Amino acid sequence: MVESWMNGISPLVRAARIMKSSSLTGEWMDHDHVFTYIEQGEAEFFLSGVKYEAREGDILLMHPFMSHIIRSTSSVPLIQYIFHFDLYYDEERSLLKYTNATKRMRKKVVDREMKLVSIIPISHLQLADRIDLKKRFLLLHKEFLDKRPGGSLMMKAICLELLHVFLRNQADRKDEEGKMTKGWAIIERAINYIHDRFSDPQLNNASISEHAGVSTNHLSHLFKKRLGISIHKYVTHIRIEQAKKRIVGGELTLTEVADEVGFSSIHLFSRSFKAAVGIMPSKFTAMQSAFGAKELKQHLDSQDRE
């Protein structure tokens, strides 16, 4: 894939991280491009409803506002090398430190940032390319963490190299790669409703399926068959992730956090939190003081997709 507009791109790398996980996380959507390299493991990627089987050595490139759900399918933890970037430098967008998208931001995205919408979002690398990619990514990751003068220029150069590796390996993929997940429109309606209403303790399978326009049994079947998770477990996951963000914020008591994210009692919240995260919310809160905000954020990043 070689097009003239590519000669003019000037990438801005916004974030870089290494993530280790073992299960479905929920739906994600970002306002910038997301470059993901699978270092270890296998996973199903649902990208705007299209399912891709990803394995070690694959790159997935998601354009802005592409919804994605990821589910690990191997016995070993999934390790991903990830960085976020804009195709073109924009002074106003360069000030954005977060990556999550909002509906309001969708209206503001410029056409030039959507140049890669039509590409197949997955490439499989040969061994030589994998070795080179890992070296390049780790250098990019170091520059991102060090925040040294001139580091943004180095990250821009590495981003261009990694984009070239991705596009060069597109020739090995078939045009028909990936198929629309059956029932995705229904699943997406349910997911959007859950994200909008997770704070309501009365949210349940019946109300979610009613909004999605299908029976509870049918929606439960779709979630389990297509995403490998129950509706209830998905709702609980979203609530726990929202709770972790509020705990890191440090402005609410645990009882207030539990109430804000939709748990009917602090006891149910504590039990659910321990089951999902592995520690009680009180201990998780204590980690904020022990590690500090920066260190705890890094801990959250490493657990974000578990």
Rank of each mutant, 00 (worst) to 15 (best):
S220N: 15
S220Y: 04
S220R: 10
H221D: 11
H221L: 13
L222A: 03
F223N: 04
K225P: 05
R226G: 02
L227G: 01
L227V: 07
G228E: 05
I229Q: 10
I229V: 15
I229E: 12
I229N: 05
S230P: 01
H232P: 01
K233V: 09
Y234N: 03
T236I: 12
T236V: 11
H237W: 02
H237Y: 02
I238D: 01
R239A: 07
I240A: 01
E241N: 15
E241T: 08
A243W: 04
K245F: 02
K245N: 01
R246G: 03
R246P: 02
I247K: 00
I247C: 03
G249Q: 14
G250F: 03
G250V: 05
G250D: 04
G250E: 02
G250W: 05
E251H: 08
T253Q: 04
L254M: 01
L254H: 00
T255R: 07
T255C: 03
E256G: 05
E256H: 05
E256R: 05
V257M: 03
D259W: 06
D259I: 05
V261P: 13
V261C: 05
V261N: 08
S264V: 11
S264C: 06
S264M: 10
S265I: 08
H267G: 03
H267M: 03
L268K: 13
S270N: 08
S270F: 08
R271A: 09
R271H: 06
F273S: 02
F273Q: 00
K274T: 14
K274M: 11
A275K: 13
A276W: 12
A276Q: 13
V277A: 00
V277C: 00
V277P: 00
P281A: 03
P281N: 07
S282E: 08
S282T: 10
S282F: 07
S282Q: 09
S282P: 00
K283D: 14
T285Y: 12
A286R: 14
M287L: 14
Q288D: 11
A290N: 12
F291Y: 15
F291W: 15
G292N: 04
A293K: 11
A293R: 12
K294Y: 13
K294H: 13
K294P: 06
E295D: 07
E295H: 08
L296S: 06
L296D: 06
K297Y: 11
K297L: 12
K297S: 12
Q298T: 05
H299S: 12
H299M: 15
H299L: 15
H299T: 14
D301N: 11
D301Q: 14
